[in-house]
Simulated assay, not measured.
Amino acid sequence: MRPSPAEIVRTLVAGRLPGLAHLAHRPGPYHVRHATDPDGRVLLLVPVVSDLAGALRPTGGGGEVAVVLDVLDLPPAAGAPSLGRAWVSGWAGRLDGDEARSAALDFAAVEPTGDLLDVGTRFRLYRFEVVEVRWERAGTVRRIDPVEYAGAEPDPLHPVEAELLTELAERHSERLTGYLRRQLGLVADDPRWTPRVERVDRYGLLVSFGRPGARRRARLAFTDPVTDRAGLARALHPVLCPRAAVRGTADQR
C-alpha cells in the first residue's frame, strides 16, 4: 500500500507548504498563503493592499479570475525523495459575509493564523473549486481526475513528518535499525548497508539502504493505514517494543 496520486496532490496543496499563484494575463507568479477546505477547494488569504489583491480583481465584468496554485514538496531531511510538484487550477472568487466566515474556519483548521481575525478589513479570502489537477514527479507530468482529487484526503502525518523522523532517529535508532535489517534481509552490523527511514506516511515507511552511491529504496507497509500520530505509535509498537512480535512486508524497488 502506498499513497495514490490524488492523495499526494491533496497532501501537497493542503496548506502546509509554500505556494505560488499564477494568474491568467498577470505578470506573477505571486507568493500566496493558502489552505484547502474539506472538499479540496483552495482558499487564498490575501492582504487587501498587495499586488496579488490587485491581480485578483476581475476585469471585463466577470466575477472570477483563473488561478493556478503551484506547490513543490519540501523533503523532511537531506537526501529524502520529494513527493513532487502539484498544480491545481480553477476560477477564484472573493468571499464575503457568511461565506468568508465559514471559509476562515476551514482555513484555521489547517493554519490557525491570527490574520484570519482581520478578514474583511486587512485581509480577504478567495476560493476556487479545483477543475484541473496535474502532478509532476521525476520529470513526468500526470493529470489527475478532479473528482478523485476531491475525494482524497491529505496525509495526516505530513505536517509532522520531519519531527517524527528526528524522533525515530534519536530515540529509537538501534531497535529500528535492527528491525529494518531483518525485514530487508541485510547483513547484520555492516555499516555499508545501514538502513535509514527517509519518509513516513499513513501507509508505511520509505527506507533507503545499500552502499554509498548505490542506495536502494523499499517500502515497509503498516498492517492498516494510520490516521494520526497516536496511530503511528501503535503501528510501530511491535518494532520499538523488544518483547512484541515483529510483522511487516517489504516491497523493494
Rank of each mutant, 00 (worst) to 15 (best):
P3K: 02
P5S: 06
E7S: 10
T11I: 02
T11C: 02
L12Q: 00
V13I: 13
G15E: 04
L17G: 01
L23T: 04
A24G: 01
H25R: 15
H34W: 01
A35E: 06
T36N: 02
D39K: 12
G40Q: 05
R41H: 15
L45M: 12
P47R: 05
V48Q: 15
S50W: 09
L52C: 03
A55L: 13
P58V: 13
G63P: 09
V65L: 04
A66R: 10
D70M: 07
V71Y: 06
L72A: 15
L72W: 07
L72M: 12
L74H: 12
A77Q: 13
A77E: 14
G79I: 04
P81L: 03
G84S: 09
A86G: 03
A86M: 06
W87F: 13
V88G: 10
L95C: 10
E99D: 13
E99A: 15
R101H: 05
D106H: 14
A108T: 06
A108C: 07
A108L: 10
E111V: 06
T113L: 10
D115L: 05
D115P: 01
T121D: 14
Y126R: 03
V130C: 03
V130S: 07
W135S: 08
A138D: 11
A138N: 13
R142N: 08
I144Q: 00
P146F: 05
G151M: 12
P156Y: 01
L157N: 12
E163H: 11
L168Q: 05
E170T: 15
L176N: 00
R181G: 00
R182F: 06
G185R: 08
D190H: 11
D190P: 01
R202C: 05
F209G: 02
P212R: 09
R216C: 06
R219K: 01
R219A: 03
L220I: 14
F222H: 09
T223E: 13
P225D: 03
D228C: 04
R229S: 11
R229G: 09
A230F: 11
R243M: 09
V246H: 15
Q252V: 15
R253W: 09
R253G: 10
